[in-house]
Design a protein around this nucleic acid. Structure first.
Length: 586
RNA sequence: GACCGGGUAGCUCAAUCGGUAGAGCAUCGGCCUUUUAAGCCGCUGGUUCUGGGUUCGAGUCCCAGCCCGGUCACCA
């Protein structure tokens, strides 16, 4: 690569553009640190650093008051003309701390500098006084740029305006080789060469936020908090499950036969074996093999991969909890999920009433997790919401009369015939229209024409009912044809013995009474309808496992990302995933 | 994949009918020992996402493409 010739020496002012100039200025400061002050602009180990929150908590009002009184006494003695050797010595019992963080604000007031530092626990102001640190440290502090990382040692005090502040102060008689921070009072630990986002609005462009999460995290404290809460939620979940005797396991992510769900997989290849593999879409069939093997309570929290569209609720890789309990059922698992989610919410948020807020701080949605959670059949919920009474045995009637009437019904509610057909009380509005799209419900019903009754029921449920289920609701009695891995209801095999838990208008968790009859399982695999790419394959080894004998069991899946969204109020799944998938920049 | 909206200085945003691309903050220089969106004075900084086209003249209008967001489809 040939370098461009160096610019000719002229008297012209440098013509670098904004970005290039900022980087060049910062490089120059970095080089000055190295050459002029003999310092490493990328720092070294510093012991004893405490989180900024802890440093703030260390503030001692009593000691601070005594110290400030002492300083005032000195000031008065000075004013009164007392000889310097007779000035009182202020008593300073303020706690001394060592802190470090990224510089978010930098205010030079002549011979006193205030900086706001930030770490993962919050912000804290530090002050560097020329008198306290002397040269060259004051000059170095003056040159600090926004986004540099600095360390400060000194007493925790308060300013005249009441801000808790660490006042940089070297310790007397310390060997700089042994502990540079004690010797100097402050250190520049890392020079930042990149231009920081504006200090008022920060980084708001969603594209930049997701692409440069490392900037987003320290620029937007909300993001840091949400990501920390995500970790706390998962920790609480593990604690809960372990406390109930569940054992965490890891099953294959690289699979020769992907199963356990209906979704298109990511394909890959093992070179040494010349073997096509897929990334798992679900761990279900392996976890069930463990029940066959004799484990009775197992769970796995890990990533699933589905080669589907991306949306505010879908990321190609997402985190899922699956748990299985031998001798359980969908009911025992529903109890478990209900208790677990409440325990997590209490532990992490301290409340069961979750409020989602707009950027302006107004409450936009309230989710009440108070137990007991509602349990209702899918057909009942659909009828309650839309007036459509599902009847699996009157397909013709539904198709020819029902759908037409539904369409009329949703186009013009005054249609008396439609009201009579659905048995709704006069004037009763069964679906709340979305003002922006009043024709939506009618289109949903129009789209049912070519579907089977089971598909019709789930379609209406998913489009018109699920989005309205904000408080938790276990939706039961789902048509069994769409759930090949669950047992059928004993009283009506048309429905499966399962729940789908909806909270915040989305499905958070399915739970099954697991199918353990190998022959019915084989039939279900072979009878599936739909897209070949999404169909579940016949997993012969899994069938063999069932033939060996799997105890009756209950099982659940739980979408961690959606749970975190629900609990933290995030509107997009990308706001709860540190590095969501993005297309490379063009 | 379809439709709608967006892309202007490092960041956040303006730019009227198609007529000289601006502001605040940041940067750079100067003053200032209790500021905190510090303040005051002065100076910089632009391939208006990319490529074509129309026009005397395009950030603005037209066409194509790229990336982001939203809705739909698919799905959890």
């Amino acid at each position: 690569m040939s370098k461009p010739p160096p610019p000719a020496e002229t008297n012209d002012a440098p013509t670098a553009s904004g970005l290039a100039k900022i980087v060049a200025d910062r490089r120059a400061k970095r080089d000055r640190l190295r050459d002029e002050f003999g310092l490493d602009p990328y720092g070294h180990r510093v012991d004893g650093i405490v989180p900024l929150r802890d440093a703030r908590a260390a503030f001692d009002a009593q000691a601070d008051a005594v110290f400030r009184d002492g300083e005032n006494a000195v000031r008065e003695a000075k004013k009164a003309g007392t000889p310097e050797d007779q000035w009182p010595t202020p008593v300073d019992d303020r706690p001394v701390v060592r802190v470090a963080g990224r510089v978010m604000q930098h205010r030079v007031m002549g011979n006193l500098i205030f900086m706001s530092l930030r770490d993962h626990t919050g912000d804290l102001q530090v002050a560097v006084s020329k008198k306290a640190v002397g040269q060259p440290w004051f000059s170095i502090a003056k040159q600090v740029d926004l986004s540099d990382i600095v360390a400060v040692q000194g007493p925790v005090g308060m300013t005249n305006t009441g801000e808790v502040t660490v006042w940089a102060e070297p310790s007397a008689g310390v060997d700089p080789q042994g502990d540079p921070l004690s010797a100097a009072g402050l250190l520049l630990l890392t020079k930042s060469l990149a231009p920081p986002p504006g200090k008022h609005h920060g980084l708001t462009d969603p594209e930049l936020r997701y692409r440069k999460r490392y900037v987003d995290l320290h620029t937007n404290p909300d993001v840091m908090q949400t990501m920390q809460q995500r970790t706390q939620i998962i920790d609480a979940m593990r604690d809960y499950l372990r406390g109930r005797g569940f054992v965490e396991v890891e099953t294959p992510m690289l699979q020769t036969l992907h199963g356990g769900a209906a979704a298109r997989p990511f394909a890959t290849h093992h070179n040494a074996l010349d073997l096509p593999l897929t990334l798992r879409i679900a761990p279900e069939l392996y976890l069930k093999r463990l029940l066959v093997g004799g484990m009775t309570k197992v769970f796995e929290i890990n990533r699933n991969f589905r080669n589907e569209g991306i949306s505010p609720r879908h990321n190609p890789e997402f985190t899922m909890l699956e748990a299985y309990e031998a001798y359980g059922s969908w009911e025992t698992m529903a109890d478990l999920v209900e208790d677990m989610v409440c325990t997590i919410a209490e532990q992490v948020l301290g409340t069961l009433v979750i409020e989602h807020k707009s950027d302006e701080g107004e409450v936009t949605k309230t989710i009440n997790l108070t137990r007991p959670w509602r349990r209702a059949s899918m057909a009942d919920l659909v009828e309650e919401r839309t007036g459509w009474k599902f009847d699996q045995r009157s397909i013709t009637k539904l198709k020819e009369k029902g759908i037409q009437a539904c369409i009329r019904h949703y186009q013009a509610w005054e249609d008396r015939e439609a009201q009579r057909f659905y048995g709704a009380a006069e004037g009763q509005h069964l679906v709340e229209w979305t003002p922006a799209d009043p024709g939506y419900a009618a289109r949903v019903f129009e789209g049912l024409a070519d579907l089977s009754p089971a598909e019709q029921l789930t379609e209406v449920y998913e489009k018109l009912v699920e989005p309205t289920l904000i408080d938790p609701c276990f939706v039961t009695r789902v048509p069994s044809v769409i759930i090949p891995l669950a047992k059928k209801c004993a009283d009506d095999p048309y429905f499966a013995d399962v729940y789908e838990l909806a909270i915040n208008g989305v499905e958070i968790s399915p739970g099954y009474t697991e199918l353990n009859d190998p022959e019915i399982q084989e039939q279900n695999f072979r009878q599936q309808v739909g897209d070949d790419a999404e169909k579940q394959h016949v997993d012969e080894d899994f069938l063999e496992a069932l033939r060996v004998g799997m105890p009756p069991a209950g099982g659940i899946g739980l979408g961690i990302d959606r749970l975190v969204m629900m609990l933290t109020g995030a509107e997009s799944i990308r706001d709860v995933i540190l590095f969501p998938l993005m297309k490379p920049q063009g």
